[in-house]
Design a protein around this nucleic acid. Structure first.
Lengths: 132, 132
DNA sequence: CTAGTTGCAAAGAGTTTGCATGGCG
DNA sequence: CGCCATGCAAACTCTTTGCAACTAG
């Protein structure tokens, strides 16, 4: 699939990495990159994002009120090992390594016969800063 | 807002209630109702769904792969008191009353300074039947 | 009778696709 | 040089909106 390294591909990935505490829509990414003169075509943005999502480097989701998808860098496969808490006020994504949550997963399986998909799960709420 | 009771409004609500273990896109709802001769206009479907979502009777979300919104009946305000586990294979929505999860919420607040929004949270995974 | 509701069709918004050009290896 | 990637614009899909006709209260 992604076989060639291109300037555009690197630009997009770098942008997401450098702003990994925030999420963006495709349109926002396009605009932001255009501001710094690194203009990418709309289609390219979508195509590369799709790949990053498939490759597990980027998470795609739809914010509650939003009409379009948001994308956020979550890093390499390493993120499978912990949980994600996402603040829907500021957009901050917290990566949490937590025994309690590990046990939660076991509890749910045992008591409710349900296998939690920790890779996909994102726990929404409000972070410390925003809850004041 | 919703002041008049109409045949269309009742038809839609009844359909969702009777199929509360499943979720549907707006288009699916339209099609299903048309099959039983209870044809609703596209716009009406969207407008009534919006209201039901605002009123808390229906949950709107975007399935991982899907391109469009899904809607599922979750009942009256009562659903704020428990947690939802959703199977992404069969679509079943489990309503779970669980001390452990209550404590989880407390734990996350205490140890991670994060206020979980239990109304919005849906824990995704695979249910008992589908995990075999 | 009045105000909310419906249905149609047109408008919008976001995303995907086709195709010629350009760039990586 | 071959093949993939890019960029543009057109095509698509889903959702919202405008408006005249209709209906609940």
């Amino acid at each position: 699939m992604s076989q060639y390294n291109t300037k555009q591909g690197e630009t997009l990935l770098r942008f997401l990495q450098e702003n990994s505490s925030r999420h963006f829509t495709a349109a926002e990414i396009e605009t932001q990159l255009a501001l710094t003169g690194e203009k990418l075509g709309k289609a390219t943005v979508y195509r590369r994002l799709d790949r990053l999502v498939e490759g597990g480097k980027v998470r795609r989701f739809v914010a509650d009120d939003a009409k379009s998808c948001c994308y956020q860098y979550i890093g390499d496969g390493h993120c499978r090992e912990h949980f994600h808490l996402k603040c829907y006020k500021c957009g901050e994504l917290l990566h949490v390594e937590c025994d309690y949550l590990d046990k939660m997963q076991a509890h749910i399986l045992e008591h409710h016969g349900f296998t939690v998909d920790r890779e996909k799960i994102t726990i929404c709420g409000v972070c410390e800063k925003c809850s004041v």
